[in-house]
Design a protein around this nucleic acid. Structure first.
Length: 421
RNA sequence: AGAGAGGUGUCCGAGUGGUCGAAGGAGCACGCCUGGAACGCGUGUGUGGAGCAAUCCACCGAGGGUUCGAAUCCCUUCCUCUCUGCCA
């Protein structure tokens, strides 16, 4: 969440920044108003409470000394009513403020270009040249069905559309890729973590998936009688990785915390009806190896660059042509301050497709998740960063298409040879 | 899943209605002592919020309640441990 103090003290710059993301100014206006009302309400409540505490102490002493407490008792009873009213008012405002604050996206980094959609993202760099085919490259789903790697029909039989079964070499390759990616990241100083794929509402809220994007999450216990007991399948390992440190105060010496994890990811793809229905590009369940870094604010930009480099050289090591794209203001994710997407070349489509997304989230999640670190005497909110390294299923697709041979087979990138038996 | 026990500060641990944000100990930091160190002694040592400040408010797993007043009583819930059951 954005810094409410900043909103109060420098409303104009917050408003103009978020305007670029399409956030309605009247919403921010309301947010500021409520936050100031809340501040006042809290003060009132605290004053009343202080008064009550003082009288209560007196009450105890009077009683001990056997003095008359009749008058005190009356005062206390009356003050108690005022406290109840003040508290109700405060809670009311808190809820109202939460409703807004939790649905306001992060501030844009100054480097983010303006833009309306994906179309306006800026290419930064192309890495490796797509291979020139002397035949027409086939799409992965055609290759996959033909050589018995991908079974779309049975995926549907088991679950529904957007579920696919990997068989034989594809199954091996998926596992090899996961291992290779984790090793690759470990060499760059990322510690491996193995995580629950299920998290609770608090965790989802801390990283920003909730409350706004509930429609895209698989909820496990619809019948949960209390909201705090609801459980969700993770849409990305970013959620459990960041939440590892929720409500914690880290020691400066522990930073930066660099983690990598493989998890399956689950997404309802609610807004994607009709898109990428063919093949394995967009699945409800897919594998991903993720990077997450918890860092001191001063260091996050440098780490951001390192993470982009890390994912890019991972792709390069797999001999996959790709490009890096700076996302524009309206294409940026809810929690991100700035994001670079890595797009891999898909020969059958003749275009690049997203395979990784690396974001500097700034203090947005840190504040939501209350992750701080000790900076001398003071506690400061950490910065968080996340990036895919990589989406495994799409990597498999990219390999199948880029490494296909004319007779319909698929070669395996050299670096993976040791990983495949 | 059932029965019982329990969740207190960095850690151990006391506290069963009043001046307790919390005894005592350990750890840690600083100071004294020392040639240096140990020992010893002294001081300090949670988080968030309001305020220029003094100070005030909240927090003893979480949420509600009783009470003038709750770490202490009641309810709900989560978690941990032990036993039983079940299972990979």
């Amino acid at each position: 969440m954005i810094d409410i103090k900043l909103l109060q003290n420098d409303y104009e710059s917050v408003a103009s920044n978020l305007n670029r993301r399409g956030v309605d100014a009247s919403l921010l206006e309301e947010m500021k108003t409520i936050s100031l009302e809340l501040k006042e309400a809290k003060r009132k409540f605290e004053d009343l409470k202080a008064h009550q505490n003082r009288l209560s102490k007196e009450f105890g002493i009077y009683k001990k000394e056997g003095k008359d407490i009749g008058e005190l008792q009356l005062k206390l009873a009356e003050n108690k009513k005022s406290i109840a009213r003040a508290q109700e008012n405060q809670r009311d405002l808190e809820n109202k403020l939460d409703d807004i604050v939790l649905s306001v996206p992060n501030l844009l980094d100054e480097s983010v270009p303006d833009g309306e959609s994906e179309e306006d993202n800026r290419e930064i760099e192309k890495i490796l040249t797509p291979r020139a085919f002397n035949f027409t490259p086939k799409p992965h789903y055609e290759i996959g069905e033909k050589i018995g790697w991908l079974d779309f029909e049975r995926g549907v039989k088991l679950a529904k559309s957007r579920f696919t079964v990997l068989k034989s070499e594809a199954a091996k390759l998926e596992r090899a890729l996961i291992n290779y990616m984790l090793d690759f990241n470990a060499e760059r100083g990322f510690e491996q973590v193995w995580l629950p794929a299920i998290v609770n509402r608090e965790a989802m809220t801390a990283t920003g998936q909730l409350p706004k994007f509930e429609d895209d999450l698989y909820k496990l216990n619809e019948e949960a009688e209390k909201k705090e007991h609801e459980l969700f399948l993770i849409p990305t390992a970013e959620v459990p990785l960041v939440n590892l440190f929720r409500d914690e105060i880290l020691d400066a010496s522990e930073l930066p915390v660099k983690l990598t994890a493989y998890t399956p990811c689950f997404r309802k793809e609610a807004g994607s009806a009709g898109r990428d229905t063919r093949g394995m590009i967009r699945q409800h369940q897919f594998d991903k190896v993720e990077l997450v870094v918890i860092a001191q604010p001063e260091k996050s930009d440098a780490i951001y660059e390192q993470m982009i480099e890390c994912a890019s050289s991972l792709l390069a090591s797999l001999e996959l042509p790709h490009r890096t794209m700076q996302l524009c203001s309206k294409d940026l994710g809810f929690a991100a301050q700035k994001t670079v997407d890595l797009e891999v070349w898909i020969p059958s489509e003749g275009r690049y497709r997203e395979i990784s997304s690396i974001s500097n989230v700034g203090d947005f999640q840190g504040r939501r998740a209350k992750i701080r670190y000790k900076d001398g005497k003071k506690n400061r909110v950490v910065h968080t960063l996340n990036g895919s390294s990589l989406a495994v299923g799409r990597t498999l697709i990219a390999i199948m298409e880029n490494f296909q041979t004319e007779d319909g087979k698929v070669e395996i990138p050299k670096v993976l040879h040791p990983y495949i038996k």
